[in-house]
């Protein structure tokens, strides 16, 4: 039964449409609205309309053009506040996408720098080189093996429930994962140019800039975009444990047993992940072919 509800979620006017609830009427009572108009509005309390246009047309028919023109703003305001889950969902979704984006962007510089020190072929086989390599690799592995959802629990206690905690959780996990991916890419580079640049008398840093970085820029970009894609998906789960965004909303609606709303949210998440997947595949194809 509820499964059917989920499937039809997005088409159900109770989820996406307009109506006036008891709370809406209460709010309208505070406004300077004539009692007869208010009574008429009480008459359509809890009646559901699929779109704003239908909603307003029906009210116009009941209270007349002039009254509607006068009280359109408060009516709409109270109606939307009570019922427009789609609006709330869309802003929560935007929050999710942006927190995933921020987590990815903030992870890039850390992972970029760390990856050079976690690449076996760049670290000299001296005791210092070995220690730096081992320490970074080990920490990255530990941080990566702790799932983002666990990080989100830790951070939601630390900085409070909300998108900031979610962002930090995804960032920590992304730094660890990207460090691994980046450094493995560095280990796979053609060593010929490195040797050639070293032979010109270039310093280590110059060699990295000229012989290593040009070889890794496009695979790095491809990995980063893929990571953003992963982060958007993980952000919804992270939201479940207090990481903000659409995950938190989904959890709330699920606990209220509003399966229609849950259905809408799942459809939205699926749609966004699908779009991200398509675009990131396209962009990666372009970059790797570069």
């Amino acid at each position: 039964m509820w499964l059917g509800g989920i499937a039809s979620g997005i088409f159900d006017p109770s989820v996406t449409g307009y109506s006036l609830s008891a709370e809406s009427i209460n709010e309208l009572e505070k406004e300077d609205i004539p009692p007869d108009v208010l009574n008429t509005l009480k008459g359509i309390q809890n009646r559901k309309y699929s779109t704003r246009k239908v909603f307003l047309q029906d009210i116009e028919k009941r209270i007349g053009k002039d009254y509607l023109r006068e009280y359109k703003t408060p009516i709409l305001r109270s109606a939307i506040r009570n019922n427009d889950l789609l609006n709330i969902a869309l802003s929560a979704l935007a929050e999710t996408i942006f927190l995933a984006l921020l987590a990815t962007v903030f992870a890039i510089p850390f992972a970029f720098v760390l990856s050079f020190f976690a690449a076996r072929n760049l670290m000299p086989r001296t005791w210092l080189g070995n220690i730096v390599y081992l320490v970074i690799r080990t920490i990255a592995t530990i941080f990566r093996s702790i799932e983002a959802i666990v990080w989100a629990i830790i951070f939601s206690v630390w900085v409070g429930i909300g998108p900031f905690a979610g962002m930090l959780a995804l960032m920590i996990h992304s730094i660890a994962a990207l460090t691994k991916l980046y450094s493995e890419q560095i280990e796979n580079i053609d060593t010929g140019p490195v040797e050639a640049i070293k032979a010109t008398g270039a310093s280590t840093l110059q060699t990295w800039i000229y012989a290593v970085i040009p070889q890794i820029v496009s695979p790095f970009l491809a990995f980063t975009i893929y990571r953003w894609d992963i982060n958007v998906r993980m952000a919804t789960i992270v939201g479940f444990v207090g990481g903000g965004g659409i995950g938190l909303l989904l959890l709330q609606q699920q606990q209220l047993l509003r399966w229609h709303n849950v259905g809408l949210l799942i459809w939205l998440i699926a749609f966004v992940v699908w779009v991200m997947d398509m675009t990131s595949a396209k962009v990666r194809e372009k970059l790797v072919g570069m």
């Binding site: 053609d190 040797e195 640049i197 032979a199 008398g201 040009p214």
Partner: peptide, 30 residues
């Protein structure tokens, strides 16, 4: 010492996605 010793390799060892000019300029890095 290295910067006065030119080196040429079997596999050319150029930086493939950079211009010929940049590759030549990299000889000046020392």
């Amino acid at each position: 010492i290295r910067r006065h010793i030119g080196m040429i390799f079997q596999q050319f060892n150029l930086i493939k996605n950079m211009s010929a000019l940049t590759n030549v300029l990299s000889g000046k890095l020392g």
